[in-house]
Design a binder for these strands. Sequence first.
DNA 1: CAAATGCTTCGACTACCATCGAAGTATGAA
DNA 2: TTCATACTTCGATGGTAGTCGAAGCATTTG
Lengths: 226, 226
Amino acid sequence: MKEGPSIAQIAALAGDPARANMLAALMSGKALTASELANEAGVTLQTASSHLGKLEGGGLIAGVKQGRHRYFRLSGGDVAEMLESMMGVAARAGHLRTRTGPSDPMIRKARVCYDHLAGEMGVQLFERLTALGHIAGRDADVHLTRRGEDFAAKFGVDLQALAAQRRPLCKTCLDWSMRRHHLAGSLGAALLERLYALKWATRDKHGRAILFSRSGEAKFAKLLAR
Amino acid sequence: MKEGPSIAQIAALAGDPARANMLAALMSGKALTASELANEAGVTLQTASSHLGKLEGGGLIAGVKQGRHRYFRLSGGDVAEMLESMMGVAARAGHLRTRTGPSDPMIRKARVCYDHLAGEMGVQLFERLTALGHIAGRDADVHLTRRGEDFAAKFGVDLQALAAQRRPLCKTCLDWSMRRHHLAGSLGAALLERLYALKWATRDKHGRAILFSRSGEAKFAKLLAR
DNA sequence: CAAATGCTTCGACTACCATCGAAGTATGAA
DNA sequence: TTCATACTTCGATGGTAGTCGAAGCATTTG
């Protein structure tokens, strides 16, 4: 009678190891082909195709056909957020799996969460912005202050362009490794873009890590020092 | 890439319809018994027990044994947040049907918990008795003070008769609608008996609700006012 | 055109898991 | 003690979903 299968359906989609690996790979924000995802998940192309069909049917991913390839990406930031929260629960509750691997310190320090900065640096960014009075509000409900607008503009973010989007400007996302919030939304995405543009950081080609240059990290720290 | 399996396990736990219904029911923040959750999920008690074991083993819920009941609650706010984000994704993907209405307000306000008062009034009773110094101790381990003995005697409770029972005088019980403790034990039962005897309240014939008369509720409030 | 690559569909096999009956344990009630 | 209730464990069953081989489009390349 009480219909609650919706969350069961969504969870079941992410509940298969192969599909979970695909989703995790897509967390980088990149669009990947079916073959690449099959390789990520460790299954054959046929199996992967079946999984991708289900994920697309469930609205978790979106596929774009380009030539003889088909590129898949997460259908939206909310999916990334859901996956992040799952990782958070898994990290806290889970003596389910082995301890963190060797490549993890980098992932833990700075990584892409869909399209914005996550990890220690992400949490630091959010908390400093809050402490400096650039962002106001708590936890879920936050907004940019006047001073924050000046800060963003000075940093090279085109706020008018962001405002034109339907997408929310400020949003928070629970960081699975830190268990604290970091900044998401179009502002979070724009700030990460600026980090790339300023060459303070680059993206790891193979994983989700964000690699700060030494000078970039220093400038980042100085930016938030005040 | 290594983090895939763990999120798959977490998601798989929520991916079964029966378990998803249980988790949705626990989203209210209330602690529910295994029977209630079985009923909520539409499965037998045996099946429910299996599911609850898995959810507990996965760290999504925590169980507290209380008498012959076992109360389950979500293990933390992060689990609730994860479920919420799943609902968000489900809603956007067009799978969601809104959850059916809230439970009976009367049940929430005052009801019988075996033989003692539970619900808002039950929690209020316990907390006021504690605040007035009639009951001392915390959470699980509580006892009646000297002043409390006077109070009980004045209210018409035969403490000697209660002391003669093997049953503990003071006990606390986790309130499923309030998520806080209320008074159980022979004293809790005796106080409820007095409420009936004084005609401050009567018991609903068909349900677990306790119906306070208007004057009864006023006297009850005055009793705890001091 | 033909060959190669990328992906999807079909079919069959397999393994897992949810489910429930029955029996067992624990706590409370009479 | 004896009965009742709440829950757990065991065992058997049935359905379902993941998996891959083989074949079938579709697109690009030569």
